[in-house]
């Protein structure tokens, strides 16, 4: 299993939580890009399908000390012991060592939902019903041919807009290139974010901005102690936000010395 490590690229994302305003554009852009199905009644959010979900957290203090932070959560594309991959009985999900992206093949998925249970980030959702695109409203004309739609009974998740990688490669081939420039392949959420809170690139390429950002002292990942090595990093200067990302024993969390902002 280990033989593939070290080759190719390792695409990753850095989300600056200090910049995120919680507007939800990333969720909308993701849904439009990836043919996410809607349901006749979308009010039951437990059953609705999202690849990018926005979580709101607060520091729990009374006004005027209340602080709020939003966590956009795509698939973490775990690099190590990828929990969903190790439990999948059908090989429907695999981690590609050449891109670092965890694939999900819907036609292969048998719908056992073991991966949903295994994913510590709730990044996977299940299609309880056949995809529904309201007739006559023109929604079906917005479907992208680059992403195959899902059927009832399969699990889906964020793919880091993998089709955009293939599109960028085709584009490079047309110019007789093999290497992609930074920014040629970015996800739909990265492109849409009005606050430019999301940075996307190759973590293994020292020239890409992401590989610089992840070295920041404010960089952290969700549930890092599980050892899944997510490729989605967050930045926050706030100690309480960083503390929220994992479970700490009393006294274990090390706050970063206060910095003067602004």
């Amino acid at each position: 299993m280990e033989k593939g490590h070290g080759h190719g690229n390792s695409y990753g994302m850095v989300i600056d939580l200090d910049k995120c305003t919680g507007c939800g554009t990333c969720m909308v852009a993701c849904a439009a890009e990836n043919n996410l199905a809607v349901r006749p009644d979308e009010s039951d959010k437990q059953r609705s399908i999202t690849w990018m979900r926005l979580y709101k957290v607060t520091n729990g203090k009374e006004f005027p000390h209340t602080e709020v932070c939003y966590f956009p959560r795509p698939c973490m594309q775990c690099d190590h012991h990828t929990p969903c991959v190790s439990v999948c009985p059908a090989t429907a999900t695999k981690m590609d060592y050449h891109t670092g992206i965890v694939s999900q093949i819907y036609t292969r998925c048998i719908g056992c939902r073991y991966c949903i249970a295994a994913c510590p980030y709730h990044a996977r959702t299940f299609n309880w019903w056949d995809a529904y695109f309201p007739k006559g409203k023109g929604l079906e004309r917005y479907l992208s041919p680059e992403v195959s739609p899902r059927m009832r009974g399969v699990v889906e998740k964020c793919t880091f807009c993998h089709h955009r990688l293939m599109r960028a490669k085709n584009n490079a081939y047309a110019e007789e290139r093999r290497e992609l420039e930074e920014g040629e392949y970015i996800t739909a959420c990265t492109e849409a974010c009005p606050a430019q809170a999301i940075t996307f690139g190759d973590l293994k390429n020292p020239e890409h901005k992401v590989s610089e950002l992840v070295k920041s002292r404010y960089a952290f990942r969700l549930l890092e102690k599980l050892g899944t090595e997510p490729k989605v990093y967050y930045l926050s200067t706030k100690d309480w936000v960083r503390r929220m990302a994992d479970n700490y024993l009393p006294g274990e969390f090390k706050p970063i010395a206060k910095v003067k902002l602004g």
Binding site: H7, K94, D96, Y97, T99, S103, E146, H162
Partner: peptide, 11 residues
């Protein structure tokens, strides 16, 4: 062989 990963031929 790098093109034999699922997400190369599937979308």
């Amino acid at each position: 062989e790098e093109n034999n990963a699922c997400f190369v031929c599937h979308k």
